[in-house]
């Protein structure tokens, strides 16, 4: 479960204080499929960043799975993120010089697992994301859709219960978008909490969306 209480994130410039997010209150339950709707610059990405613990708010509380994550020291915060949160970035953010297999294995390294265990999990994730056939290809040689699926596999490999997607379909063609949606549905059925930040209308008609949050100028619109 994710709870955001009185969250504020602002940046002080010489002239003024710019609020990326203001007075955010939000609760997301386990297994929900949440859509964050809004134009670019509205604060969706900032919100995702705060949920992932990758940034710290100026005030407010973020509680994930009962753990107030803001005050966690890096050692603990990183471990938490590693184990509970999977992220699919807008531009995939793969390590171009490594293979698909190694990219997917990357989040597992801090976990101190054996090579055997890592191999098992990576293969499982590649299977779910339907990208096993490209396991030994270099990430730089992949098409957009394939990179997307690699990113998905990577987000799953730690068995994280929360998946965050930042504009996942922005760089995909129609066919790949369909594929992506199918995979998302599979993940939803696995009872993962999924939060998608997007302004792609293709998401609007999905029947398994449990909540739509509109963000306008850093605030949640009613």
């Amino acid at each position: 479960m994710i709870e955001l209480i009185e969250l504020n994130r602002y940046y002080d410039t010489q002239r003024e204080r710019f609020y990326a997010l203001k007075d955010i209150n939000l609760t997301i339950n386990r297994g929900e499929f949440v859509l964050l709707n809004g134009v670019s610059g509205s604060g969706k990405t900032t919100l995702l960043t705060l949920i992932a613990g990758m940034d710290k708010p100026n005030s407010g509380i973020v509680i994930i799975e009962g753990e107030p994550i803001i005050k966690l020291p890096d050692q603990h915060l990183s471990k938490f993120r590693n184990q509970h949160i999977g992220i699919i970035f807008q531009h995939y953010n793969l390590l171009e010089n490594l293979s698909v297999y190694d990219n997917v294995a990357t989040p597992l390294i801090p976990m101190r697992l054996s090579l055997k265990e890592i191999d098992k999990r990576v293969k499982e994730s590649l299977e779910i994301a339907n990208i096993s056939h490209k396991a030994s290809s270099l990430a730089s040689s992949l098409s957009g859709g394939e990179k997307q699926r690699t990113a998905i596999a990577r987000a799953l490999v730690t068995k994280a219960s929360i998946i965050l997607c930042d504009e996942p379909t922005a760089n995909l063609d129609k066919a790949n978008r369909e594929i992506f949606l199918k995979i998302l549905e599979r993940l939803h059925k696995l009872n993962k909490t999924i939060i998608v930040s997007t302004h792609d209308p293709i998401f609007n008609d999905l029947d398994y969306i449990t909540k739509i949050v509109h963000i306008v100028d850093g605030k949640i619109a009613k």
Binding site: M54, D74, Q75, L77, S78, F80, N82, I85, N93, P107
Partner: peptide, 12 residues
């Protein structure tokens, strides 16, 4: 940045 986002700690 990517590694840290994936859960690598500063120590790692």
């Amino acid at each position: 940045g990517i590694l840290r986002a994936l859960g690598w700690s500063i120590r790692d």
